[in-house]
């Protein structure tokens, strides 16, 4: 079926099986391998994307559900070489180790900061609670989101 949607602010028209999982469509058909898969059933958050600005799990979405929506993946955040403030805070703050959870974490952080630009530390932990990380122990990720919130102020 023909699916039309905005992908990282560009109109996309693609032919896809309607029941293909969005994570597969992104990775296999569109070459956007920044969206990761860690469990396939919504437990790890590695496949998170923004759908109309809201974080959702691309392993639990079908390609047909993209039609008419505005999708942002991890690849759509940086402006050329210039990282998004959340991404920059992750790098500077040491929030990245193996990095396989990082794209999903950044998406979760963005979702949180859009709802709550000045979160408490506990609210950050709450906002990241759908994303499992096996390397960092979360602390530096929380630090990074805190720093990004400070950096961005109300700009988001």
């Amino acid at each position: 079926m023909l699916i039309r949607f905005y992908l990282n602010n560009q109109l996309k028209e693609i032919n896809s099986d309607p029941d293909k999982r969005v994570v597969d469509l992104l990775r296999e058909n569109l070459g956007l391998t920044g969206t990761k898969e860690g469990c396939g059933e919504g437990e790890c958050g590695a496949c998170s994307i923004l759908v109309d600005g809201v974080s959702k799990l691309s392993c639990l979405m079908l390609a047909a559900q993209l039609d008419g929506h505005n999708i942002i993946t991890i690849e759509g955040l940086a402006d050329g070489e210039k990282l998004h403030p959340v991404q920059a805070a992750f790098v500077v703050g040491g929030a990245v180790q193996c990095g396989f959870c990082s794209p999903g974490m950044v998406i979760a952080a963005l979702d949180l900061l859009q709802r709550n630009p000045h979160p408490q530390r506990s609210e950050i932990r709450q906002g990241l609670s759908g994303n499992l990380c096996r390397c960092t122990g979360y602390q530096k990720i929380v630090d990074a989101v805190e720093a990004a919130a400070l950096e961005m102020g109300d700009k988001l």
Binding site: G42, G45, S48, V54, S55, K56, L57, L60, M61, A108, D111, L112, Q126, G127, S129, G130, N131
Partner: peptide, 9 residues
């Protein structure tokens, strides 16, 4: 319930 993205869906 679940987690933020689960609640969004």
């Amino acid at each position: 319930l679940g987690s933020p993205p689960i609640r969004h869906m």
